[in-house]
Write a protein that binds this DNA or RNA. Structure first.
Length: 219
DNA sequence: TATATGATTGCCT
DNA sequence: GGCAATCATATAG
């Protein structure tokens, strides 16, 4: 039995939790008793005095209004939302209650329940395509609805755990977060170096710099 | 009420 | 590389 990480793990500064979630396991119990397990290889931190976080209002920080109120939940709860009209994103809340913080799970190495994950991700041809992106992870782990918004993620059917196996030591790298237009200066993305299950996107600071450069060619 | 955009993915040229 | 999908949320009028 994998024992869930408890609330005290998440009740710490968001950046620390995001970093320490690398190498931990995400565990999902399905209704039929089947279990899905994956190893977290990429995360992003949100909500620490953060223009890139949901609910940010210039000069006023993140406000607990609507969807973003979920970031103010007690630590270890689900913050799940729908975006681009197609995809669900899985986050876990961090830091003290009433402090906005959450960690987005962006990259996972699937360990158990691969057949089920392939059935959830019919477009996936290679193993890495199952879970190398936040929307893919939500689909593969059957988190495709608001069911886990605000839910306690320190117990089944969805929780995090230490890896009981002997894990290779790994190096942690950081970058600007992916897919943002605001808050691109902060390097709040964490990932395991050279791991094939890290998502393929470009960090936002690099993406914006390239765009700028392309624009100047037209002059 | 109306429009723009998004913590993305996958298809198309 | 470009761009459509498709809807919740934010912001403007």
């Amino acid at each position: 039995m994998l024992s869930p990480l408890q609330q005290d793990f998440f009740a710490r500064p968001t950046l620390l939790v995001a970093r320490e979630l690398l190498g931990k396991l995400l565990v999902r119990h399905l209704q039929d008793g089947q279990r899905l397990v994956g190893r977290i290889v990429e995360t992003e931190a949100y909500g620490v005095d953060d223009p890139g976080a949901h609910g940010w209002r210039d000069g006023r920080g993140v406000l607990p209004i609507g969807r973003s109120a979920g970031l103010f939940a007690p630590p270890g709860r689900g913050y799940v939302y729908f975006t681009y009209g197609t995809h669900w994103m899985l986050n876990v809340t961090t830091d003290a209650e009433d402090v906005p913080g959450g960690v987005l799970i962006r990259g996972i190495e699937p360990l158990k329940g691969l057949d089920f994950m392939y059935s959830q991700r019919p477009k996936a041809r290679r193993e890495r395509d199952l879970t190398n992106g936040p929307g893919k992870i939500a689909a593969a782990f059957a988190v495709i609805g608001p069911e886990f918004f605000g839910k306690d993620l320190t117990r089944p059917p969805l929780y995090f755990s230490d890896d009981p196996s002997d894990q290779e030591p790994f190096e942690i790298e950081t970058s600007s977060r992916i897919g943002l237009s605001k808050g691109i200066e902060a390097h709040w993305r964490f990932f395991i170096k050279d791991n094939p299950f890290v998502s393929p996107g470009l960090p936002s600071d690099i993406a914006h710099a390239r765009k700028k450069q392309r624009g100047s060619h037209r002059l």
